[in-house]
Structures are given as structure tokens and as C-alpha cells.
Amino acid sequence: MNNFSFTSQSYKSFPAYPKSDFDLESAIPTTTIKRTRKPKNSPIFHLFKMLKKFHHFFKIHPFVAILLLSLSLGITLFVFLSYNATQLNNYAKTDLGFDDYPFSKLRNLVMVAGHSVYMSSGCGKIEKEDSWYLESYQKNPGQAATFVKHIEEGVGIVDKDEEGLLLFSGGETRKDAGPRSEAQSYWAVADFKGWFGKEESVKWRALTEEHARDSFENLLFSVCRFRELTGTYPQNITLHYEFILIC
């Protein structure tokens, strides 16, 4: 017979079930499991808390809250507009140096809108209606003289403004008149008239804008032309149409 010797050994005990009460049938612990709360440091939590405080403050001091809200919106709008104005000013000087523009020292725009094309090969009949290409509604006695007076007044306005730039505005608006623009017609008439005695002061700063087809484009394209010649947009604009003067 074999003899077996039994030696004492140490055993480790393991719990068969958790220490909490356990329902064997449902396999669900009977004790409530505590869930840890999320830390209150999320941006949404702080935003909600701030809005709640503001709502409480608004209920207590409504007028003060409205004043503070208006002030904050005003400051925000002021900063936004100031930033955009700075960006626009920087953009206006990106392509060329400010002093590289031919008329960089001029600040004001005087625009004379054209209303007809001069057709005569010479300038001896400037004030005669048959020297101009006239529409049916323009064929009135004295119409040509009105054009000349219109040009003279524009020259006079620029002569009194040392920082003014004169632009005759008007494109090739008459098909039967050929490749002749209203702006070039007005400039040629002013030159023939010796700039009405103001040639030295005005001629060097009198130019043309030759793409406009109507009154709106007279203004829009003249502002763009001014920017092209001076490097900046005009500080003051004087619009001289045939029937009205707008400053």
C-alpha cells in the first residue's frame, strides 16, 4: 500500500459574489450604484451659468442691463468698423506706393456728365445744334449753348478748388456718331475754348471717364477713375449734370 503524505498548504480565498447584496435571479445588485458627476468646468456649463446670472440681474436692474448691453454692442460695432476702415485704407495703397499715382495730391472729385457727342471736324461751330449728335428730345434752340455752359461751370468749380480733379464722364453712347465719346467731346470743347481763361490752373487736372452709359454709371465709374488716378477715393464729390448741381 502506498503511503501518501499530506503537507499543510496555504490557500487563498476568493469571494464568489460581490460584497453588496446580489439578486441571484435577476443578476442585479440590490444596492444603488453611485455615479460620479462630471466636473463643472465645461464651456457650456459656464455659459449657461453666466446667462442665468445675467437673467437674474436683468430682472433686478432692467435699465442698467439694457444700458450695458447697448454699450457692449456699440463698442463691438465701433471696433469692427474701425478694423474694416483700416483694411480698406491699406488695400487702397497695396498696388503702388501712394506717391506713384500721377494725381496723388488731389482729394476732391468734380464730375461733369456728358449728354451728347460733338460731331463737327472743327470747333468753329461749337454752339450750333447741327454740330452735335442730338436725340429727338434734345433738338431745341439753345441746346448746344447749354452744353458749353455746362462745361464752363465745371471748369470754374475746379479752378476754385486746389485739390479738385475734373472728370468729364460719358462713353460712346451714340451708335451713329461712331467711336466718339461724350467725355472726349466735352474735353475737346473746353480745350478749344482755352479752358475759359483758366487753362494753367485746370487743364493739367482735367481728364475723362469714357465708359459710362447713364447717370448712375457717370457717378460710379468716375469714382473708380478717381481711385485709379489718385490712389484713394474722393473726400468730396461734386456732380454737375446738365440740369442740376449736386455737392
Rank of each mutant, 00 (worst) to 15 (best):
V64D: 10
P15W: 00
L67F: 14
I44D: 10
E153Q: 09
F98W: 12
L165I: 10
K149I: 01
K19Q: 10
K12V: 11
L67Q: 07
K128R: 12
K52F: 09
C123T: 12
L47T: 09
E127R: 14
A190F: 01
R35F: 09
R35H: 09
R107F: 00
Y101K: 07
A206S: 14
D159V: 03
Y186V: 05
Y133R: 09
Y83A: 13
I66K: 11
D214G: 04
A144F: 03
D191G: 02
P141W: 05
Y137S: 09
G122I: 00
N236R: 15
G164E: 07
M1I: 05
N41S: 11
I75R: 11
K105Q: 12
L106Y: 15
F78A: 10
V223G: 05
S181I: 06
L207R: 14
E209C: 05
H150R: 05
L96P: 05
S72H: 09
T232I: 08
Y186I: 03
E200T: 07
A92N: 12
P179Q: 13
Y83V: 08
D95Q: 04
Q138E: 14
I66E: 04
S20C: 14
F226L: 07
T32R: 13
R107S: 12
N89A: 11
G194D: 07
S10G: 06
E182S: 04
Q138T: 11
N218E: 07
N140V: 08
T31L: 06
H150F: 00
S104L: 00
L239N: 04
P179C: 02
K12C: 10
L165F: 09
L165V: 02
E127L: 02
H61T: 02
R205H: 09
Q138D: 07
E152Q: 14
S5P: 00
K203R: 15
C123G: 15
F6G: 14
H61A: 07
F48Y: 06
T31M: 04
K12H: 13
P141I: 05
L229M: 15
A92C: 00
S104V: 01
G154I: 04
Y241Q: 11
G154S: 05
G231Y: 11
G74C: 10
G170R: 01
Y133T: 03
E129G: 03
Y186G: 08
D191C: 01
K128T: 10
W132R: 10
S169E: 08
Y101N: 06
